Computed example of a mutant assay.
Amino acid sequence: MALVGIYDGISARLKASGEYVWPLALRLIMFWEFWESGLVKLRGENWFQHIPTNDWVKGFPFPVSVMPNDFNWFFATWGELVFSVMVLLGLFTRVSAFGLIIFTAVATSAVHWPADWSSLGELWNGYAISVKDGAGNYKLPLLFVLMLLPLVFHGGGKLSLDRVLLKLTGRADRAADTIGDLAAAGLALLVIGLPTVMVEEVWGITLLVLAAACLAMPLLRNRS
């Protein structure tokens, strides 16, 4: 029992320190990746008119595909720069991290995702850094999304401007609030479904329909 107590004590302390460490670590690395990407665009020339760059690439998803390339370039450049700084500061972290997920989903469809695949096994061949036989190379953007999702669901952590705003508005006690209901499931499906629809429409629409159902059911129950 003494060992169990020691383990529980270590776990509790790691959990407490983790509220500071892991969100900040994710924010720092995500800031740098997207800030650097935004700077490259800011200092470079617009190459969006060349998308799709290869026969195997899916290309821009709708509605980005029908927007002017100059607008897309401007929006991508400044979106990455602004959202990355917000993530670094932990300011409206959930919104800024989700914005970067959307940018990543668009980029994945545009230059990383294969236009045609016949099985999940074939699609999995695209989980790579370098393209091989036109199978795609979506490994890096997928990892970025997986690193941003905790910031969407958990927030920026204790070392963030979001936490300062909570204290300034007298809502510091709400930081640990959790509500596990159908609406929570609907929001989770919405967060995952919106970027997914940019890459694979059928998958994304399915998730969005499920999200709508989860969000609507509590409202329908309240009316009945």
Score class of each variant (00 low, 15 high):
L3A: 13
L3S: 11
I6C: 09
I10P: 03
L14T: 02
L14F: 12
A16G: 04
S17Y: 15
S17C: 09
Y20R: 08
W22A: 15
P23D: 08
L24A: 14
A25T: 10
M30I: 02
F31W: 13
W35I: 11
E36T: 05
S37F: 08
G38M: 06
L39H: 03
H50T: 13
I51M: 05
T53G: 08
D55S: 14
D55C: 06
F60S: 07
F62T: 09
P63L: 14
S65N: 13
N69L: 10
F74G: 05
F75I: 11
A76H: 00
T77D: 00
W78P: 00
W78Y: 15
M86L: 14
F98E: 01
G99N: 07
I101Y: 04
I101P: 02
I102K: 01
I102A: 09
I102N: 03
T104A: 10
V111W: 01
P114G: 11
D116T: 13
S118E: 14
L120W: 08
E122R: 05
N125W: 10
Y127C: 07
I129T: 12
I129G: 06
S130R: 06
G134W: 13
K139C: 09
K139F: 15
P141R: 04
L143T: 04
L146Q: 10
P150S: 12
H154W: 07
G156P: 08
S160F: 01
L161W: 02
L161A: 07
R171W: 09
R174L: 15
T178M: 09
I179G: 04
A183K: 07
A185L: 15
L189I: 06
L190M: 12
I192A: 15
P195I: 04
P195Q: 12
V199K: 02
I205N: 04
L207V: 08
V209E: 05
L215F: 04
L215T: 01
M217K: 02
L220Q: 07
R223N: 10
